[in-house]
Amino acid sequence: MAQATLTRTVAVRRGRGRRGESLTKVLFVLPAALAMGALFGYPVVKNLVMSLQDYGLRTFFTGEAPFIGLKNYSAMVSDQLFSQAMVNTALFTIGSIAFQFGIGLALALFFRRRFPLGGLLRSLLLLPWLLPLIVSSATWRSILEQDNGILNRTLTGLNLIDQPVPWLNSPSVALIAVIGVNIWIGIPFNVTLLYSGLAEIPEELYEAGQLDGATGWRAFTHITWPNLRAVAGVLLMLGVVYTIKVLDIILGLTGGGPANATQTLATQSYERSFVDFKFGEGAALSNLLIALSFVFAIFYLRSTRRAVDE
């Protein structure tokens, strides 16, 4: 009898708890939902709206931003720098990722071999990735400086070049130099992710492969790469999404110059909005960036769907 009453009280208390509980559950998520809405939802909507408005310096005084249809987009496309910015963005993204990934994979495979201090060396390798980008930019600017930078002094000293290379001062070299710096920054991240991917491949696969004569390059193409493809896919898509929007490094190294040789969609968007105060045109450019990221995002979400479902 007492037992039955007790059970009922607990049941009642639980029932009452459940209703209050669904409210509590909402409260767990509410702050994050509000923050995500304010920090991502609102900006996306606001950029879409602004890109259809004449949103300029005047707007900040009068509060007026008349709708002008697609004029910001036609101004964007007809700008003489637009095609160059598109090409530079593509070169910057593809060049950075190809080398970050290639070098990252080589280093990850190297560190996969067990040797003394391997783990320590591998974790110290992360340092370039953790430094503030503007710190890296400043450092590389001193290294790449034309007259007295250590790179040119070393190359001249080794008789590899006759004239100092104007790494950041010549329109024909600057983009290559900027891509080089970005590769340096991205290698550690690629090594870390690829290494963790390699670590998940069971050792038995290699032992079995060895019996079938799969060693060296054959082991790589038949065992390593097929098992690494999921991680590699995520990494490449993340690489595109992160690289396409890079702004700090370019602003710190060249500011888009010399002679606009390193302008990308991101730097152009920044300049329209925060230098020219044409927020409408800046928004149009940044919407193009979102659209491009989104194309790759679809691949990215496909390749991570497995991870999410788990």
Partner: peptide, 16 residues
């Protein structure tokens, strides 16, 4: 996941 695709300059434009 989608939020990670949104460039910082988009957020800066709107927040400004």
């Amino acid at each position: 996941l989608i939020s990670q695709m949104i460039p910082g300059i988009v957020i800066a434009n709107a927040l400004y």
